[in-house]
Amino acid sequence: MTPTTRYLIFALWVIVLASTPLWAGNYFVRMAITIAMFSALTLSWNLIGGFTGYPSLSTAAFFGLGCYVGALSQRAGVPMILAWVAATVFVAVLAAVFGAIILRLRGHYFAIGSIGLVEVLRLVTSSWGSLTGGGDGLNVPLVQGGPNVVAQTFLAAMVTIMVIVFVVTVLVDRGRLGFGLRCIQQNEDAADMVGVDTTRYKVIAYTLSAMFCGTVGAAYASWTGYIDPTDTFSILMTIKVPVMCLLGGAGTVLGPVVGTGVYMILEEILWANFLDYNRAILGAVTVLLILFLPGGLLRISYKTVLAQLAARFNRLGAAA
């Protein structure tokens, strides 16, 4: 797939999502918002998890932090968009500091440390009642206007964030940073030996991957109007995001978007039809993905698959 094809596919997908209010009802608009939101998260995760190869499980930490910084800013009278910007900056700074400490760990230790951040932030948020409202959660000032206006506002916002993260991904992928990150992903010691400042590159990648989770979190808080610790610092989310990315193809530019789209649509269908078993089915999908599709949907050589199928049909034909 050439880069141009990739960008074209992405552009088409953006148009499909952004135009839902024109051709579909509220249900689909809501879904489009959610898909754009998770696409921004998977694209973000891809920068550290895919390009750099660090198994980060801290998505929900930065998402949740973004939720709370955004919500608290808005409650303090900061205009909505500025509150989102504040959340982005706050999360970026925190991620840079935390990253500088934790990126010295590798493999399982890094994974555990990054998931530990989610837990610590959730616990702190739950118990710091005077600031965060504790387990009761926080109400966020609602956007004025009818339900359609609100939906369209947040659709525009989430799609914009998704496009921004995609552009960042493309720039990283084509630039010096992306090349250095791939070197780190392949062999960190060797990357160091050829002159890649590995610590700096990793911290930059981690910060980039965290900051937009903060933006998305703040936008999510404004959208739903209510947040609580278990909903925002969710372990399920922190693992779902990498799974979606793996489904599409980690380390590719378009993979996170494809993976998110396929996963969310699948999840929606399962929710609607198998309410009691949706988790088990998601689990089964995850297991099958890991066992039979390790490179993700984009890494399949469809030509080979088609050729094999054709050969099989021919054999069947010959046998008959």
């Binding site: 998890g49 493999g107 990498p242 799974v243 988790r279 689990g283 995850t286 297991v287 890991i290």
Partner: peptide, 17 residues
């Protein structure tokens, strides 16, 4: 790490459900 972690997480979803 991520592969085995994700795999056992998937299995956990099934058992939990």
């Amino acid at each position: 790490v991520l592969t085995t972690l994700t795999l056992t997480f998937g299995l956990d979803l099934i058992l939990y459900n």
